[in-house]
Design a protein around this nucleic acid. Structure first.
Lengths: 206, 206
DNA sequence: CCTATTACCTACCGTTCGGTAGAATTTATG
DNA sequence: CATAAATTCTACCGAACGGTAGGTAATAGG
């Protein structure tokens, strides 16, 4: 009926995002999506190849935007502490404002094959995001900001794990979003550790 | 046909585990499960109320076994470092031998509602597992093993996030499993931090 | 040897799904 | 105003799904 013009494709994508994020891929039917936008099924198949293509577009968008955030945040500073803080702060903010998109990206990573369309090829984008953090860490090691006795990969794993756990918790359990203070404290924990600093521990290092 | 005796129920559960873990809940049909065991559909419905009940049984088993591992590992030692190391080592081992069960439990946690049967009521079991770690951390703080300037919840989040990231990575990407040495290094990172120890940092603490 | 219970079977139902054929309607072009 | 292209419709298809009705073979108890 009501002609939407070139807006239709975008509206379909947005409705699909909401449905996929809240019910998952399999449990979302294309009928629900087109009903939300008040168009008919062939309208969807006019703009997208199939249901899987629709999902794929969203997943790639999610990963790309995360990568954009990472790069922009890291560029804001030179020392590793501030860089990691900016990354966390910006991610927290972005996640708050784009819960659904981020949810899709995480759910896809942890989903069993078959629960999600095949040939999504998101693995390389995951790796690109991780390797960006990894490169920051490595740089900070050579500049003497980070301990060299840990493998750079271990450290990247450590920070990425810490960050992702907070992000996922915030996605799964819609409570108070972590704020800038939380970001600083997380980075502090990562850099200084949870153990008490006993002089004995320090002797071999000092 | 071939009578299996009281083994049938167990065999169905095991086949369901394999299918659910590798293809997810929605993409697994009860027909596939009963075909694997070479029984007919009513045989499945004789032992389980419905498809959701089958899945529920597996999810609860997964969470309960993880809790058992946590408790047993923590009981092996008194100081927090050794406790956390034991927890990681035992979890790594258990995950290696029970990839499919663990995969179901994680996928469920990150799944959108609707992607998984309703009324699973696994949230309280998640919380129980987390709170166990939390209690260990709190004890270690009062005994002076861990820094008091971090909130106990923050620390528990930190360690849990670190641990889970390793575990999930190992599940998603079937590579070399983290070993006992990795466990020690992870705990070391958690306790001592990634930053270099500059004397200046230590002044306010010593 | 009869009977009840357990442990399944074959065959099927109603529903829902992703996707499409083909017509209709709107918009752009000449 | 004619015609072509873009956009969306109604109506439907075949396949797969979860679940069940109703019958049957094996086992156990008396």
């Amino acid at each position: 009926m009501a002609r939407h013009g070139p807006e239709t494709g975008r509206q379909i994508l947005q409705a699909a995002l909401k449905r996929f994020a809240n019910a998952g891929y399999a449990a979302t039917s294309v009928q629900q999506i087109v009903d939300d936008v008040q168009v008919s099924k062939p309208a969807l198949y006019y703009y997208f190849q199939d249901k899987a293509g629709l999902f794929k577009a969203l997943v790639h968008q999610a990963h790309d935007e995360r990568y954009r955030i990472l790069c922009a945040a890291a560029a804001k500073s030179d020392d590793i502490r501030a860089q990691l803080e900016h990354i966390l702060m910006d991610l927290f903010e972005y996640f708050s404002e784009n819960r659904e998109l981020m949810r899709i990206s995480f759910a896809t990573m942890f989903a069993a094959p078959g629960e999600v369309p095949a040939n999504l090829e998101y693995a390389e984008k995951c790796e690109r995001n991780f390797e960006f953090i990894h490169s920051l860490i490595r740089l900070a090691q050579t500049s003497g900001e980070l301990e060299e006795r840990f493998d750079s990969r271990e450290l990247a794993f450590g920070f990425y794990g810490l960050a992702n756990f907070y992000l996922v918790s915030h996605l799964v359990r819609p409570g108070a979003a972590p704020d800038n203070l939380a970001a600083k404290r997380i980075v502090d924990l990562f850099l200084t550790g949870a153990g008490v600093r006993q002089p004995a521990d320090l002797i071999p290092i000092l």
